[in-house]
Structure formats: structure tokens, C-alpha cells
Simulated assay, not measured.
Amino acid sequence: MIKLTQFSPCLKLILWGIIWLAYSSQLCATSNEDVHKIRYPKVVTTSLYQNQANYFIDVLKLVLERSSVNYQIEYVDIPTLAQSRSQSLINQGFYDIHWLATNSERESQLKPIRIPLYKGLLGLRIAFVNSSKANLFAKTTKLDELKNLFAGQGRDWLDTKILSFHGFKQMEASTTFALFEMLQINRIDYFPRSILEIWWEAEQPEAFGLTIDPYIALYYPEAVYFFVRNDDIELYNNVLKGLNKAIADGSFQQNFERYFGEHIERAQLHKRLIFSLSNPYIPSETPLGESRLWHELDLQTTTAD
């Protein structure tokens, strides 16, 4: 056996360096083998929904931290696109997981992780109105009065289908900005938005000349889930377990309140007349009976249709 004492001090340092490099390389190789990368889309063309994007990323990080697998998020840059397009990109393997509003067709194409990430509040809507008509709904007491006015809605939105089912008059556009413009020139009468979206939308320059109605709200059950490909069973199981752990230890609720607690309070729901609508497009498997998954909403003063 050759002993290091047989070598000069300089050569000893070189030999120790070689041994350390070999050991470090082996550690890195082992570490890299244990990392499981998840490709997740990140919109790069707009800052309007950055708050929303950050929320879902933080939820995913919470979930992955509670998994026994060493996951690493790898972001895939995408433009603003319709949810139906994102659905296709998941199926094509362009990325692995994304949040989407659920419906029966989508659940037949992808695997839903049935934990509602917005706790059902995507379907709780208050409206933008033109500032010149700030009291448009001050005397509204019946749903038919609302149906006689034109709502602005987006193409490819589930909300558009729900309101159409209930007989609402609507005009559609392809973007939120276009709907802002339509309301500014009075082509539509109001533009319903989720209470989780409307407050930071109102701060955008594109919403100039618009105000948030303080009198009424619409509510219908609607769920937003993480979706994965049907064959990605491992990712499905690990995200589902992680979500349930985050709910159980309170971190999911803490993150939700950090992003949206103030928005919910600002809506002053106790002062509004809330019209409750059914959602005929929500899948029967939706866990509506699991109260721990949904925001508690007092609908005692709601007028149902």
C-alpha cells in the first residue's frame, strides 16, 4: 500500500485535491439522479395576472416540499393563451402540470387533482361597471333585472357558458383588455369578475373609467385544479398527497389568506345581494360536500333562480 507520507507536501495537496474532486463528483451524480424535474408554464408576455401566477407557483412549491420525492420546478415560457390550449400542451408533453378550471370535457382528457385551489371563489363574481353608471345595480332586487342587461364575457370561458345557460344577455371578446374597452364605451353594461381577480385588475391603466359595483354579486360553484396527463400517476399521487398535507398543517390556508384575504374583505359580501346560480357543467365527481376544501360562504340572503 502506498502511503501519502511518501510524497512531498506539494504532491500531497494535489493527490488530496484529486480524491476530493472524485468524491464530490460522485455526490453530485447521486444528487442529480434523485432530482425529478417538473415542467411548469410561465407566462412571459404580460404582468396583469402576475399575482395569480405567483399564487399557483407558491401552492405548487408548498405541495412539492411536502412530497417524499425531490422535485425541481423547470419553467417553460409561454405567451398568454386560452385554457383549452394549455390543456392541449399538457397532453402533448410540452409541460407536466398546470392549473385549469374544471369541466367534464377537460376531465376526460386530463387527470384532475380534485383540490379546488381557489377554494371555490372563482365563481363568486362582482362586476366592473362604467364609472358614469356607478349606481347601476343600486335598486336591483331580481335576477331578471340583471339578465336584461348585457354582460361582458370572454370566448372559451366556462363562465360564459354558465351565464348563457341561465339566459343572460352577453357580448364576448377574446381578451380581458377588449372587454374593458367595451365597457368603457358602453357596448356592455357590466363585466363580472372573481373577487380574487377584480381588485388588482382595477389598478391597471386599462381599467381607467371603470368602477367596482358595491351592490350585488353572482355565485356559482366552480373549481380550479392542477391537471396532469392521464398516464402521469406518480406526479398525480405526490401532488394530491402534498395538497392534503398542506391543508392539514394549515399552510395552504395561510398562503391563500396571504394572497386573497384582503380581497375577500374588500368585497364586503355582507352588504351585497348575492344571486346564486347552478353550474350545469361542473362534473359530478367535484367534491362539493367536503367543506374543508371550500371557502365558507354565507348565502342566507341569496336570491336563487
Results as ranks from 00 to 15, higher is better:
27 L>E: 09
33 E>V: 10
38 I>C: 04
38 I>D: 02
41 P>T: 01
58 D>M: 10
73 I>L: 04
82 A>W: 02
90 I>Q: 06
91 N>P: 00
96 D>V: 13
97 I>P: 01
97 I>F: 06
105 E>V: 13
109 Q>G: 00
115 I>A: 07
116 P>H: 10
120 G>T: 11
126 I>R: 09
133 K>T: 03
136 L>W: 00
138 A>M: 06
143 L>Q: 09
148 N>Q: 15
151 A>M: 13
157 W>F: 11
162 I>E: 01
164 S>F: 09
170 Q>W: 09
173 A>H: 12
175 T>D: 07
175 T>Q: 06
180 F>L: 08
185 I>T: 15
185 I>R: 15
202 A>F: 11
205 P>D: 13
207 A>C: 06
208 F>I: 13
208 F>K: 15
214 P>V: 06
215 Y>N: 09
222 E>C: 01
227 F>T: 01
228 V>L: 04
232 D>T: 01
235 L>R: 01
249 D>A: 09
249 D>K: 08
250 G>T: 08
251 S>Y: 04
252 F>I: 14
256 F>V: 12
260 F>V: 03
262 E>G: 03
264 I>L: 14
269 L>A: 06
279 N>P: 01
279 N>C: 03
280 P>E: 09
280 P>A: 04
285 E>K: 10
289 G>Q: 15
293 L>N: 05
293 L>V: 06
299 L>Q: 12
304 A>D: 03
